[in-house]
């Protein structure tokens, strides 16, 4: 199946102007935005960064009050301390990143054509530890989420601009894998991310309003009252997979990294506003 997809992609590329079967990421993005514009005419594009609150008037006010004294404030501080504390070898995170790691979190994820991998912020944090001889951090919460919160906070207001190089078949395959995950029915309950966050976004599942997928990624890591703490995007992926009784993938697995690649691309043009608070 994957091979076939790659083959069609390659054919499409070889065909040059001849339209490939696969829609281009750019085309996908156009349709995605148009869909939500039509579904929620009262929500301005820039407001989608607020997740479900962009369409949930009833709980918006309460949420805005929470954001006045954000529960993740402490996490940002902890993250900064962790970030600036030197490793055993005397170096620190700042040595691993461009611009000392300040104001760069919004550049993630990106496709690295050398390794043929999607590179995520959390992945880079642990990679930095590895080259400095430190043990990796656990992926979904705790220190890694705090550091991510700090780094994202320094990128607040920067525009999401994930690039999918259409002339790189490996990057296109990664994008396609993420897209397939998003639209595929899964789990014993047989539901796709798209079912809940595209087709029925704005509807209620029991008492919960379903958030639009547009803007989904910009606010991570998020502080959830349900978690009683901060969690990464991959933690949320695992939770949403479990809800439909699908076996979650490992955080930072190829499956979730490519999902993040597609999912974040779909929020291009929106500002980075992580960390943020959610129910």
């Amino acid at each position: 199946m994957k091979k076939l997809l790659i083959a069609t992609l390659v054919l499409g590329l070889l065909g040059g102007t001849a339209l490939s079967v696969q829609a281009s990421p750019e085309q996908d993005l156009k349709e995605f935005r148009a869909y939500f514009k039509n579904r929620f005419p009262g929500t301005p594009f820039n407001d989608y960064v607020n997740g479900v609150y962009s369409i949930d008037k009833a709980s918006r006010e309460q949420w805005e009050q929470i954001e006045e004294f954000p529960p993740y404030e402490l996490n940002i501080e902890k993250g900064e301390t962790l970030y600036t504390t030197p490793f055993a070898n005397g170096k620190s995170y700042a040595d691993c990143f461009d611009k000392g790691g300040i104001g760069i979190a919004h550049r993630y994820p990106f496709f690295d054509n050398e390794s043929g991998q999607v590179i995520t912020l959390e992945g880079s944090i642990n990679a930095c530890r590895a080259v400095n001889g430190e043990k990796p951090l656990k992926w979904q919460k705790g220190a890694i989420a705090d550091i991510s919160a700090y780094m994202n906070d320094t990128s607040r207001g920067q525009i999401t601009n994930v690039v999918v190089p259409t002339n790189d078949p490996a990057a296109m395959a990664a994008y396609q894998q993420g897209k397939d995950h998003f639209y595929a029915k899964r789990g014993q309950l047989n539901m796709a991310c798209a079912d809940c966050h595209i087709y029925y976004s704005g509807n209620k599942i029991r008492a919960d309003l379903l958030s639009p997928a547009l803007g989904h990624t910009t606010g991570f890591p998020v502080y959830r009252s349900k978690w009683g703490g901060l969690g990464t995007l991959h933690r949320r992926y695992g939770g949403c997979n479990k809800q439909v009784r699908a076996k979650p993938y490992k955080p930072q697995s190829d499956e979730y990294k490519t999902l993040e690649y597609f999912h974040t691309y779909m929020s291009n043009g929106l500002v980075n506003n992580g960390p943020s608070a959610r129910k």
Binding site: Y200, K204, I205, R206, A207
Partner: peptide
Amino acid sequence: ACHGMGDGTLPGNI
């Protein structure tokens, strides 16, 4: 989760 039905409380509307 998805249907109003009978006297069930807090139904969804999917």
